[in-house]
Computed example of a mutant assay.
Amino acid sequence: MTSHDGTLRVLSTSDLAGIDISLADVVHTVEGAYRTLHAGHSDNPRKLTVKPPDGHSVSYAMLGRDGTRDVVAIKTSYKHGLDKSRDEQHYYTSLTIYDDVTGLPVAMMDCSRIGSLRTPAVSALIARECARPGARSALVIGTGTQGRLALPFMLTTLPGLERLMVFGTHSDGIAAVRAELRAHFPDREVEIVTDVRAAAHDADIVVATAGAHTPAAVESDWLEPGALSILVGHGLAPSTLHRADRVIATSEAQMNVTGTDMADDEGELPAVDTEFPPVLAGLTAGRHHAEERIFAYNSGLVVTDIALGHRFAQLALARNLGTEVALWK
């Protein structure tokens, strides 16, 4: 599956957009990446972050190795215009994969679609493992890239969900949420809510995916006992973390880097009770009892990007998609 020596297969946004992949396939791929990491066969060092003093942009670099696929990859992410509206922001992310058996490059690709699938798949896995038994209602805050697929993925892992709620402030985003749900689950309807407090009170699961400018900030005392709150972007107040009965993170180290906006008045974050990989492996509990309020921090791990990116590369190369670039000639 590797490129010829001295060349690199580049997969563009449009190349990847034309590839069909089921939600179940994505969930299976992401779950496998977590299990491989927990087994000690993969490496996922802490991400590097740089940000200018005025906070108008943020950049990340992430290196990882997938021990199941024997590949090494580097992901970069750059967002500009954090002080501006969503329409004025610029965001670029890429993933470059190398075969660690042959030593040859596999592909370099736009990572935006991979991220838009990987993150809600992780939230859906967290919901499957940590929601209280018999969970029937879910609230998604935000209608951007992550919010649009949050409900379809949760229905993939928790088909018993009955009430599906979304809070958003952008009409185009709300329309996109409806379209995504209809595309994957044509018999299901989403309820657009305007009273976040009432909706959070009624929700067994709250997934916060909104941007930094969202007016939503769910407080701990808005949530019923047993509620699960998952933070992906913004939309949860720090009290949901600090007053939780149980705190779970995909990576405590990454939470301490990227979750500083959830710190208390002393600038501190609470200790994590468990990371998510051992929960998936069945070594630690997602929850101990039905009344626990659980906070989960979904920061994303590069090993999941690598696994899903490798899956996309397989599908793309089978269709001879992409452009060969003689980068090293």
Score class of each variant (00 low, 15 high):
residue 3 S to A: 15
residue 5 D to W: 07
residue 6 G to Y: 00
residue 8 L to D: 03
residue 10 V to K: 00
residue 12 S to G: 10
residue 20 D to S: 13
residue 21 I to K: 07
residue 25 D to Y: 01
residue 25 D to G: 00
residue 27 V to R: 03
residue 37 L to G: 07
residue 41 H to A: 15
residue 45 P to F: 12
residue 46 R to T: 13
residue 51 K to I: 07
residue 52 P to N: 14
residue 53 P to L: 09
residue 54 D to Q: 13
residue 55 G to R: 05
residue 59 S to Y: 13
residue 60 Y to L: 10
residue 60 Y to F: 11
residue 61 A to I: 07
residue 62 M to I: 12
residue 63 L to E: 10
residue 64 G to P: 02
residue 64 G to Q: 09
residue 67 G to L: 01
residue 70 D to E: 15
residue 73 A to V: 08
residue 73 A to Q: 04
residue 78 Y to W: 15
residue 82 L to F: 04
residue 83 D to W: 11
residue 84 K to T: 15
residue 87 D to F: 09
residue 88 E to R: 12
residue 89 Q to V: 12
residue 90 H to C: 10
residue 91 Y to S: 12
residue 93 T to N: 14
residue 98 Y to C: 07
residue 100 D to Q: 05
residue 102 T to W: 06
residue 103 G to A: 10
residue 103 G to L: 04
residue 104 L to F: 04
residue 106 V to T: 09
residue 108 M to I: 12
residue 109 M to V: 06
residue 110 D to L: 10
residue 117 L to W: 00
residue 118 R to A: 05
residue 123 S to N: 13
residue 125 L to D: 06
residue 131 A to D: 03
residue 131 A to L: 01
residue 132 R to G: 02
residue 144 G to R: 02
residue 145 T to M: 15
residue 149 L to V: 08
residue 150 A to G: 13
residue 154 M to D: 15
residue 154 M to S: 13
residue 156 T to R: 06
residue 159 P to F: 11
residue 160 G to C: 04
residue 160 G to S: 14
residue 161 L to T: 06
residue 161 L to C: 04
residue 161 L to E: 10
residue 164 L to V: 08
residue 167 F to W: 09
residue 168 G to M: 12
residue 171 S to I: 15
residue 171 S to A: 15
residue 173 G to R: 05
residue 175 A to S: 11
residue 175 A to C: 03
residue 179 A to C: 11
residue 179 A to R: 14
residue 183 A to R: 08
residue 187 D to W: 01
residue 189 E to P: 00
residue 197 R to L: 08
residue 201 H to K: 13
residue 203 A to R: 11
residue 206 V to D: 01
residue 208 A to F: 06
residue 209 T to A: 10
residue 212 A to S: 14
residue 212 A to K: 14
residue 216 A to H: 04
residue 216 A to N: 06
residue 219 E to T: 11
residue 219 E to F: 06
residue 220 S to M: 07
residue 230 I to R: 03
residue 232 V to S: 08
residue 233 G to A: 00
residue 233 G to I: 01
residue 235 G to M: 04
residue 235 G to F: 02
residue 236 L to N: 01
residue 236 L to Y: 00
residue 237 A to I: 00
residue 238 P to F: 04
residue 240 T to V: 00
residue 240 T to K: 00
residue 242 H to G: 03
residue 247 V to S: 06
residue 250 T to I: 10
residue 252 E to A: 11
residue 253 A to N: 07
residue 253 A to D: 15
residue 254 Q to H: 13
residue 256 N to M: 12
residue 257 V to R: 08
residue 263 A to W: 09
residue 264 D to S: 05
residue 265 D to N: 14
residue 265 D to Q: 14
residue 266 E to H: 14
residue 268 E to F: 09
residue 269 L to D: 13
residue 271 A to V: 12
residue 277 P to C: 08
residue 279 V to E: 05
residue 281 A to H: 07
residue 284 T to Y: 05
residue 285 A to E: 15
residue 291 E to D: 15
residue 292 E to M: 05
residue 294 I to G: 00
residue 294 I to A: 01
residue 298 N to V: 12
residue 298 N to M: 13
residue 305 D to K: 05
residue 305 D to C: 01
residue 308 L to V: 11
residue 311 R to H: 03
residue 311 R to L: 07
residue 313 A to V: 13
residue 313 A to R: 03
residue 314 Q to H: 14
residue 316 A to H: 08
residue 317 L to F: 02
residue 317 L to Q: 09
residue 317 L to W: 04
residue 319 R to V: 02
residue 324 E to C: 00
